[in-house]
Design a protein around this nucleic acid. Structure first.
Lengths: 170, 170
DNA sequence: CGCTCACTGTTATGGTGCATAATTATATCG
DNA sequence: CGATATAATTATGCACCATAACAGTGAGCG
């Protein structure tokens, strides 16, 4: 992909104005747009591509990253409370509530009153939820393979480690 | 961050950091959290962290990733058309229009009629736009340093290359 | 006990980003 | 000329996310 945009017009007038001499020297030719060696920029584009691929693959299962994340965590930690889940998924409690409401309506999870704390709900997968999760895992594996195509195992691990360091910065 | 949620045990010991699936498997535990060795998952979290850091740093300049990207591209490619810019930034034309409208209102860019095509606008930075860009570059550099802290030059390059490959998959 | 305060979850509400559809003006081509 | 394509814009709707306000419950303390 090209970052530097070429005006349709043969640009008779070069900028001639102050163009910060960042590191244009390395490119040798025209000025690089200063966008394509930015971590944040590629992070954004990569995430968008991954998101799109995910949606496409999971559409038949009616799963979004958030929904799948919730199901996975509920499976891994049955009887977890909503607030705990919300924190783990970086979702605000109000939005967690509506999302779980939909999951429950779809018959994928159940909310069981916690006898030890009648304010709280314990979350559990229904059989349907478990079944969906099995299907999702297959789809997700293929997706992961596609995403990390071109990366060997070691590169992939390094990538995840790097992303993790960035993510855990805040 | 911990992926496996423990509701009952009040997380006696701090969950510490998440544990890679491999280590868990070696430890004989059978239920992996299944979230923390996913490219898509960490991509999302890293992007969120980067986005947050960006917003915080750029708030005084009233810049978003999109706005900054537009300014940078306009600087690099003066007289570019809106549609070209929209494509480069992965923004739909309608949204590009309102965004550029705001940039123009803020006195950062100008829309000049293209004499060769009276439907199109040629985009240029105003002096104020150039000035803001100078400030933004400084902020952005510090930000980039923070983001890639813990990564040496080579690792950073590898990370960007990997992200790029993912982004360009679609 | 009764009061206050913290917590769990929920609903209501608003902003923002992004997408599509429709509109206007211009360009291009048969 | 007339049909179709392009560039930009406006209008509109939706999904996501955040905050605020609320109801029900638990827990500490005089």
């Amino acid at each position: 992909m090209s970052i530097v945009v070429r005006p349709d017009q043969p640009a008779a007038a070069k900028p001639a104005v102050s163009r910060p001499a960042a590191r244009r020297a390395a490119a040798g030719e025209e000025q690089p747009a200063a966008l394509d060696d930015r971590l944040g920029y590629w992070l954004r584009l990569a995430q968008m591509a991954a998101f799109e691929a995910f949606n496409e693959a999971m559409a038949p299962l009616d799963l979004t990253p958030g929904r799948l994340g919730a199901l996975l965590l509920i499976e891994a930690s049955p009887n977890a409370h909503q607030s705990t889940l919300a924190e783990a998924l970086h979702v605000k409690p109000p939005n967690m509530a509506v999302m779980l409401g939909r999951l429950e309506q779809d018959g994928l999870i159940r909310r069981v009153d916690d006898p030890a704390n009648r304010r709280a709900n314990m979350l559990r997968l229904t059989p349907a939820g478990r079944a969906l999760l099995r299907r999702a895992r297959k789809v997700e594996e293929e997706l992961e393979v596609k995403l990390s195509a071109g990366l060997n195992t070691k590169e992939r691990a390094a990538l995840i480690a790097a992303l993790r360091r960035i993510a855990e910065k805040s």
